[in-house]
Amino acid sequence: MKLISVLLTPNTRNPLYLIVTSSKLPGYKISNLCCYSTFKHKRSIKECYTVLNVPEGCSAEEVRDSYKTLAKKYHPDSGASTASAARFMQIDEAYRDLLTNLAKESKKAQAMEDDEEKMSEYKIPQHRQYLNYEGVGFGTPSQRQRQYMQFRVDRATDQVLDFRKQKLEQQYAENSMVAKDVKHSKKVKITQAIERLVEDLIQESMAKGDFDNLSGKGKPLDKFSACPHIDPMTHNLNRILIDNGYQPEWIVLQKEIRETIDKLRQDLVASRKKLGDPMAYKQEKQWMEIREKFTVDISKLNKRINDFNLVVPLMSRQMVHFRVEKEIWRAEQAFLVLKEEMNAVNNTEADEKMDNVQVNPTEVFLNLIKYLKKFRKPNKQNKE
Score class of each variant (00 low, 15 high):
residue 341 E to A: 14
residue 329 W to V: 05
residue 329 W to D: 13
residue 330 R to Y: 02
residue 315 M to G: 14
residue 333 Q to S: 12
residue 319 M to P: 04
residue 321 H to P: 01
residue 319 M to L: 15
residue 338 L to Q: 11
residue 329 W to P: 00
residue 344 A to P: 00
residue 313 P to A: 12
residue 338 L to E: 09
residue 335 F to H: 03
residue 314 L to V: 04
residue 316 S to F: 02
residue 325 E to F: 12
residue 332 E to L: 08
residue 346 N to S: 13
residue 333 Q to E: 15
residue 322 F to V: 13
residue 334 A to W: 00
residue 339 K to F: 07
residue 343 N to W: 01
residue 314 L to W: 06
residue 331 A to G: 15
residue 327 E to S: 15
residue 341 E to P: 00
residue 318 Q to S: 10
residue 337 V to G: 01
residue 316 S to Q: 12
residue 344 A to L: 03
residue 317 R to C: 12
residue 333 Q to D: 11
residue 336 L to V: 03
residue 347 N to E: 07
residue 315 M to V: 08
residue 324 V to L: 12
residue 317 R to M: 14
residue 336 L to A: 11
residue 330 R to L: 15
residue 313 P to S: 11
residue 335 F to M: 05
residue 321 H to W: 12
residue 345 V to L: 14
residue 315 M to W: 04
residue 327 E to H: 10
residue 348 T to M: 06
residue 337 V to P: 00
residue 332 E to T: 03
residue 323 R to E: 12
residue 324 V to G: 02
residue 325 E to G: 13
residue 330 R to G: 03
residue 333 Q to P: 00
residue 313 P to Y: 14
residue 340 E to N: 09
residue 337 V to M: 02
residue 329 W to T: 08
residue 342 M to Y: 02
residue 317 R to Y: 11
residue 344 A to H: 01
residue 328 I to C: 15
residue 326 K to M: 07
residue 327 E to Y: 06
residue 343 N to K: 13
residue 335 F to Y: 07
residue 320 V to L: 14
residue 345 V to G: 02
residue 343 N to I: 12
residue 326 K to T: 12
residue 322 F to L: 07
residue 333 Q to N: 13
residue 347 N to Q: 07
residue 322 F to M: 05
residue 328 I to D: 11
residue 342 M to D: 09
residue 331 A to Q: 04
residue 348 T to F: 08
residue 326 K to I: 04
residue 318 Q to W: 01
residue 315 M to E: 15
